[in-house]
Amino acid sequence: MMATTLMTACLKPPRFVIEPSVRFDVVSQILRSKSRGLILLVTFVLATMTWSATAAAQESRTWTDASGKFTVEAILKEVKRDSVVLIMTDGTEKTVPLAQLSADDRKYAADYRKAMLAENAAKKKATADAKKRGEDLKDELTGILQSFAQSEEQLKQAEQNPAQFRVARQSLVQETSQKLIELVSDVPQSDVARDVYLWVVRNGATDAPNSTATKMLVEHFADLPELAPMLGFLARDLSVLEKLVEKSKDESVKGVGTFLLAQQLANQENPALEDRVKKLLNQVLTKYATVIGVNRQPLGPQAEKLLFVLEHLSVGKVAPDISGADLDGVPFKLSDYRGKVVVIDFWGDW
């Protein structure tokens, strides 16, 4: 766009003088292209904001050169030590030395730079503080867990009856979990928080502590391989399983999650879900066959079994034939009874 070319020229004024008429043309050019420029502007601001924090929410303003003669509309993108980066109305960027700007503009740029530096410093400090707090909490975590272990030992001594001990221990777990979750509430992504959430879930806390810990593990620690063997009780909800499978980068979490998802859907015995279940099981067979499931057995054979059940042992499927001998040793087959209603009864006298 012509305006840009002239603008660059404007702000490089040494020996360069533009006649007032030419300058008027520049302004009217900018005005005429305003509506189109605005769209470009908005698009550009959005795009810039996503990758550059320094472009945050800057508004378009009128920039004036040191001589006070020339002005242009532009957005401040960034302030460097000796220059500013401006976004023109056509979306292009120009770097302009501070020395060529009016005093007001230089102050504006300096204030902006100051604010940005302060904001960055504050962010850095907040991150550092959060990390530090997480580390500081390690000692407190150890303390709480030690006191849990002591109380648990005391309960063991006091309660003769195993059932009573379990009830008493459960309320101790619950109480401890609440303390632990409170401890890490400001640093939910720290290592200490991770240890807390794992402890809470592994020790069978229920209600609020359990749901908080589960939520946080899924939210912040989906890549943790430790989650895989816990998925059976960690992810009872289909939605949690789906989220984990989608989110996690850990092969075992993805594998176990995919298998459990298939299993839960298969349990619904809904023919409409059959294709989806088969797809999930085939994923398990091709990608996660050697991953160890929640029952400590590899997923491959389990997926094959479930596929067999789905294809041959579900309502609506022809039952697999049985070929064997009766209790007198006489051979016979299930298929000998075609043409009759057959009740098959797996039984034993015990």
């Binding site: 499927k317 039952a319 075609r338 209603v341 057959v342 797996f346």
Partner: peptide, 21 residues
């Protein structure tokens, strides 16, 4: 083969050998 994990387990087949219940 029938993946039975609980006893008793009951299947009801129609005259075509199709599992119905």
């Amino acid at each position: 083969q029938w993946n039975v994990t609980g006893w008793p387990t009951i299947y009801v087949l129609d005259q075509e050998g199709v599992i119905r219940y």
